[in-house]
């Protein structure tokens, strides 16, 4: 049993994992912010476009959401990191992971916001427009605030999933928690660093997973 909790190995692994926590958090927060913003912008555009010339834009946004829902995030990350350089685009591991996670979350967030927007009763649009609000104002002041309430639980869960998916970045040599643990594990031939990393992930994500569960019961979506 001692090999799993070897104090010397744990002490050697801690500084790397400690700095990995900063990288994990930095990558998680930046891709969550980018993904949610992207999803909100796309859903807004999709809700506001009208008329024949712009109709295809809505279809394109829906297609984007479909493609990135179907694509495994790791496949996307590997393509961005290992194929893009052939086009002269050299992304660092961190940038590739940021773009991949942001695009994937953007697709789910667009879907979630869109579902929220479409669930707002048609009468709300009509009432807002009849008071003289423009379409944009009606959207911003009447429809969106009601839509956002419905989006909070699923969006929280997708954000947590994005945070956990930062572990994928270890594959493209980003020195986040898992990558740091794996490199010490390779040097020491001991499973202790991996267990330490697992403990770090549990400490980071267990409270969030519990909070997500609480939100689901607090704001039921169905």
């Amino acid at each position: 049993m001692r090999i799993f909790f070897d104090p010397e190995v744990l002490a050697a692994a801690w500084p790397g994992i400690r700095s990995g926590i900063d990288v994990t958090l930095g990558l998680a927060l930046s891709s969550i912010a980018a993904g949610v913003a992207l999803g909100l912008v796309l859903a807004t555009v999709r809700a506001l476009i009208r008329g024949a010339p712009l109709r295809p834009v809505g279809g394109l946004i829906a297609a984007y959401a479909d493609v990135f829902r179907a694509m495994p995030p790791l496949v996307l990350l590997v393509v961005l990191y290992f194929a893009a350089p052939f086009a002269g685009v050299e992304l660092s591991g961190f940038m590739a992971a940021f773009v991949a996670l942001g695009l994937v979350l953007g697709a789910s967030a667009e879907e979630i916001f869109w579902a929220g927007i479409t669930s707002v009763n048609r009468g709300q649009w009509e009432a807002a427009l009849s008071t003289g609000l423009s379409r944009g104002e009606a959207f911003r002041r009447v429809v969106l605030p009601q839509a956002v309430r419905l989006t909070i639980p699923p969006l929280t869960n997708r954000a947590i999933a994005t945070g956990k998916n930062t572990a994928l970045a270890s594959v493209v040599a980003v020195p986040e928690v898992l990558n740091q643990a794996a490199s010490v594990q390779a040097q020491t031939a001991s499973p202790a660093p991996l267990l330490l990393a697992a403990g770090v992930y549990v400490a980071l994500f267990l409270p969030l997973v519990r909070a997500g569960r609480w939100l689901e019961t607090r704001f039921p979506t169905r």
């Binding site: 090999i3 930062t166 001991s190 697992a198 519990r210």
Partner: peptide, 22 residues
């Protein structure tokens, strides 16, 4: 259930595949 979900799937995978042999 929440404890399992707190693990990124890749971490669970690496832990089991590289940890079980020990």
């Amino acid at each position: 259930v929440d404890l399992v979900r707190a693990f990124p799937p890749l971490v669970l995978l690496v832990l089991i595949v590289h940890g079980l042999p020990f």
